[in-house]
Computed example of a mutant assay.
Amino acid sequence: MRILSPLLAALLLVTGLPLLTRAADTPAAATPKTSVWNGYEKLDFEVAGKPALLVKPRTPAPGNPWIWRTEFFGHEPQGDIALLGLGWHVAYLKVSDMYGAPAAIDLMNQFHDYVTKTYGLNQRVVLEGFSRGGLYAVNFAAAHPDKTAALYLDAPVLDIRSWPGGKGASKGDARCWKQAMDIYGLTEDTAKDFKGNPLDHIDALAAAKIPILAICGDADKTVPYPENTAILQERYKKLGGNIDVILKPGGDHHPHSLKDPQPIVDFLTKYAYAK
């Protein structure tokens, strides 16, 4: 039986969700379905009943580095494709509509354990959080810093009250807000003092010296920069953390990423697996 990390256990207690345990062996599809994605072999399978995939480079780089898109696989994939060309694997687990809650982090940990054991991937992964994927990426990194090589965040949601809650400059999303409150066990009243957001875990990231790259538009109306990444950047720098923010002047929530992914590649290849 797996013992939860202290941080993940604390998250579960704060949200009122039951502690999740599992057997050591993660159930997964015995024979992955094979296809081609952007010229690379893609394996589709399931882990703990959730759709998952792994895209394999033609020649793996030393140490088997990998990047894990936590949401919206295939959207603006130029960074992923560039890393594939350098021998990185690209992964995805579909845990949509779980907003980075402890139940999602537990499923992600099962996926991590499965792909590292089955495909020999590095124990430390770069987590790639696009939009609401930022909730999953940062919360996983905070709960499992020993399994995290770096964070690449792209217009990330870092506070559910900002989005989907719409408690600040964003209009939010009523349907998604209800989903988020339900999975965290919150009400409109208790959400005001909620402490399970990525922005509540900045100290844990800094203590683990996790390098962070963030790409944002300074005019993002969906996930406002001042309510999310600007707070992360200020606090992380004060804690001595390594964070690089590429701010797109006048940029809205879309398009994500960069037309030329070289700055993404440069940051991750320099810092993610540095000893």
Results as ranks from 00 to 15, higher is better:
A82G: 07
L53H: 06
F130R: 02
Y92Q: 09
D44V: 07
D193I: 14
D159G: 04
L153N: 01
I215R: 01
A141S: 02
Y271V: 07
T116L: 11
L12Q: 14
H89V: 01
G196T: 06
S5E: 15
A48Q: 11
L199R: 07
Y271Q: 08
E71A: 13
Q123W: 09
A191V: 10
P57K: 13
K42W: 06
F130M: 15
S96Y: 12
G240P: 06
F45K: 06
F72D: 14
R175C: 00
A143G: 06
V126Q: 01
Q110I: 00
V36D: 13
Y99E: 11
A91G: 07
P57A: 13
R58D: 14
S131Y: 12
D80F: 00
D80H: 09
N139W: 02
L213R: 02
K117S: 15
A206W: 03
A219Q: 09
P65F: 04
H144W: 02
A204V: 14
L258R: 11
Y99L: 14
F111N: 01
Q110E: 13
G251T: 07
L151K: 00
F45Q: 14
V95A: 10
E71N: 10
T148P: 02
A142Q: 05
D80K: 03
A103S: 13
L12G: 14
M98N: 09
P261E: 01
D244E: 11
P164I: 08
I243W: 04
K42T: 12
S5F: 10
L83G: 03
A219M: 01
T148S: 03
G217T: 03
A150C: 05
L93K: 10
Q110F: 02
I160D: 01
T21L: 12
Y92N: 14
D173L: 00
T34D: 00
P18T: 10
T59N: 12
K167A: 00
Y99F: 15
S170N: 10
E188G: 00
I67T: 12
